[in-house]
Design a protein around this nucleic acid. Sequence first.
RNA 1: GCCGGUGUAGCUCAGUUUGGUAGAGCGGCUCACUCGUAAUGAGCAGGUCCGGGGUUCGAAUCCCCGCGCCGGCUCCA
Length: 638
Amino acid sequence: MIKVILKDETTVEVPRGSTPSDVLQEAGIPADEGMVIAEVNGEAVDLDRPLEGDCHLEFLDFNTARGREAYRHTASHVMAQAVKRLYPDAKLAIGPSIENGFYYDFSMEHVLTPEDLPAIAEEMARIVAEDLPLTREEISREEALSLFEESGEGYKVELLEDIEGDTVTVYQQGGFVDLCRGPHLLSTGRLEALRLLSLAGAYWRGDEKREMLQRIYGTAFDSSEELDEYLRMREEAEKRDHRRLGPELDLFSFHDEIGPGLVVYNPNGAILRTVIEDFLKMEHARRGYQLVMSPHIMRKEVWETSGHLQMQYPMYFFEIDGQGYGIKPMNCPAHIYIYKSRTRGHNELPLRLFELGTVYRHERSGVLHGLLRVRGFTQDDAHIFCTMEQAEKEIDDAIRFAFEVQRGFGFTEFLVALSTRPENYVGDIEEWERATELLRKALEGQSLEYVVDEGEGVFYGPKIDVKLKDALGRYWQGPTIQFDFNLPRRFEMTYAGADNREHTPVMIHRTVLGSLERYMGILIEQYSGAFPLWLAPVQVEILPIADRHVPFADDIRERMESSGIRVKVNRESERTGNKIRKAWQMKVPYMVIVGDKEVESGKISVRSLAGRDERDVEVDRFVADLSREIDSKHSLEV
RNA sequence: GCCGGUGUAGCUCAGUUUGGUAGAGCGGCUCACUCGUAAUGAGCAGGUCCGGGGUUCGAAUCCCCGCGCCGGCUCCA
């Protein structure tokens, strides 16, 4: 007999070689409580894996990350089996579970189209109905090699070559065999709700020099309700899509004639951006940043010095009077030249230069995506030049600043990542370690949880990335703070130290929003276009009931305008209901309705976007309320 | 850039399979109505059917080449 300690600390005794399923029974837990896999001493295993000795045992259902992973991974095996049944020549590549679903990559003669998906889904349903058991087998590498070589699974052979160790595991269900670490569900019949979502091309091993495979995306849940809920969520996301809302709300537009990835700001978008810019300028000024500006084009030599040219950074180049110029893809060189515009002493450091700098990058056509990925965008870019000793505080402040601003825009949940030295790097290891340590210290000093992305730093220094969680639970890239050892040397930057000798300053790149375009895209989706009052392009729309009420409406409008409220009057000869509907469609936060009663009393009726209705409101009181609401979203604790 | 899909009025889409000279709703404009909290009615205008070549007596429709957009890969603010 062996002792099995469960999660609730109870101990169950079972014969050696019993399986987690046996333990489930022994412990009186109904086997079909939706348990997916088990963890034995922290190792994820199948529910029918024999227990070899005393152990800690935990059961994982679909609501755990690892359980969900195994569940969806099983679904991907079922999909692969279905594809093999329908297209016997299909070669298997990889088929992992991913956030919200799974995929499998294939190589085959037949080119899949969306019309093929129903047949594959049907075949999958058949496999589920057949309730095929999934069995795990440990075999030697050699055995596996010959197995997959014989069946012509070249990709599996290649994977095997990279696996260390003498034995590997394969999983099999109904004659379908796959190289797989597992664990899996006990049988295909345990899959409840499956859905194929889309097709895509994907390079083998993500390498664009290698062959393009056909990928099928799908998802799986352990109840059809949850699947439906997920599909509803996708629909909701589609409704919030900034690419749909942007033109609808007259925020921005794209034009084939102007070019892909080049944003045009329509009036409402320009207002929104101006509000954001003014806010940023103020917040930077309050924190000792100095606003600077620099040209959009700079001579080619600048980009040689910075290294962009040699790195073949995706820039645009052209000639003027026989001189080569490049359109700036980054603002740093200009800020460095501002630094270098005179000699610097240690007393004037840290020097914090801030620019709303518009940059252009030649993004490959396939990656463009609304406002989130464009070819021309404006960064809220700052460079802090300081001594290594000052860096710690600067980083600390920059992180604090970034979070304060993000909270001001209504984001409260974040994912923080610290990226360390990549394989290709400049500078010496000691420097890297020191800088990485500073970043780590700052994060820990502020009790921020973070993950370490080993080797994900930029070649010139380690960095901190912050992702924002939006109202739909999606994450977006936000602030980034990057150390740079490279540019200060390349541009031969110096300052006179207290020792009256020349030193090289440290440079920190940082942005709070990243790109204004992308951030606006994120904001649109976060609020589905219904911005908080301080950001709303039109804050109040006045709706006269009949044409004769227009003069009174204009009167109110002027009073509000003089208080800085962004207000419009709807002068159309329309029914009030329709005017409300139109203002609502444009997501105007407040509607003011004026008719005979209002003209007579001088008071107004106020209707909020949410439908709240208040009568007999004094105009001054309303304006004061608005101002308070605007300020409340606006003010940040510093 | 690569793989797949897609492109008809400002927007959403029908017409493409089986080639025979383009349609709806919303939106816009005009007129009438002057109205109290999510669509008043009538009329009018609006289309190089993404672009260029080809096949054909004839192309939105078939073929070829581009371009844009969408879903991914890769990359990144």
